[in-house]
């Protein structure tokens, strides 16, 4: 386990939506702030680098004082999934014989939802050089990240499509507040870092 590891998910709008100090070192507030400053600064590098490579995992894009920044860029995947869901629900509702009016309401909502959650960056500030572990960590977290969205989305769809609007997770660029997600991420950090 790395002594220092700061994990952050940055939304498309450069807003951190999840942050966690997953290192084993004793946490100091100042240090934590410094970590975030480094990660924030690294966004400049990532921004340029992401366009030069097709790889999602960009290892050691930036460093400062022995701390290295590795980034996992997710790009444009969720978009299609949402569209799929939209079509499915449309069929579902029309088969159930719901009135057309409500179906249209729902469908228009889904269209507006599709525009979000692309190009999210998972960023890790670490002092170890365990690239493979970091890569696995990123992949697992990404999967988890998508799952969280899936899970809630699918359950919500079966209940009532309107609940999505009330769920803070589905507002674009809002913070991930799920404690379940947090626990899982920390477990993954212990496993891989």
């Amino acid at each position: 386990m790395a002594s220092t590891a700061c994990f952050i998910i940055v939304s498309r709008n450069d807003i951190p939506i999840y942050e966690a100090e997953v290192g084993s070192a004793v946490k100091k507030e100042d240090a934590a702030h410094q970590h975030q400053f480094i990660l924030h600064a690294a966004l400049d590098i990532v921004q340029d680098l992401a366009w030069t490579t097709s790889a999602m995992f960009l290892k050691a894009v930036d460093r400062f004082n022995d701390l290295v920044v590795s980034v996992y860029v997710t790009a444009g995947h969720i978009l299609h999934i949402f569209k799929l869901f939209y079509t499915l629900t449309f069929l579902l509702f029309s088969q159930r014989g719901q009135s057309h009016k409500s179906t249209y309401k729902r469908s228009s909502f889904f269209v507006s939802l599709t525009a979000h959650i692309i190009h999210t960056r998972l960023m890790l500030l670490h002092d170890s050089r365990n690239d493979d572990g970091i890569k696995s960590f990123f992949q697992e977290v990404h999967e988890l990240y998508i799952k969280v969205y899936y899970c809630i989305l699918s359950t919500v769809l079966h209940l009532d499509a309107y609940l999505i609007l009330l769920n803070p997770l589905y507002l674009p660029g809002s913070r991930i507040t799920s404690s379940h997600f947090d626990t899982k991420v920390r477990a993954l950090a212990r496993k891989y870092l």
Partner: peptide
């Protein structure tokens, strides 16, 4: 448009801003 609202709050990294 919601997107333009989002753009207003781009890069709002509150931890850093407070520091």
């Amino acid at each position: 448009h919601p997107q333009s609202v989002v753009s207003l709050f781009e890069s709002q990294w509150s931890t850093l801003q407070m520091v």
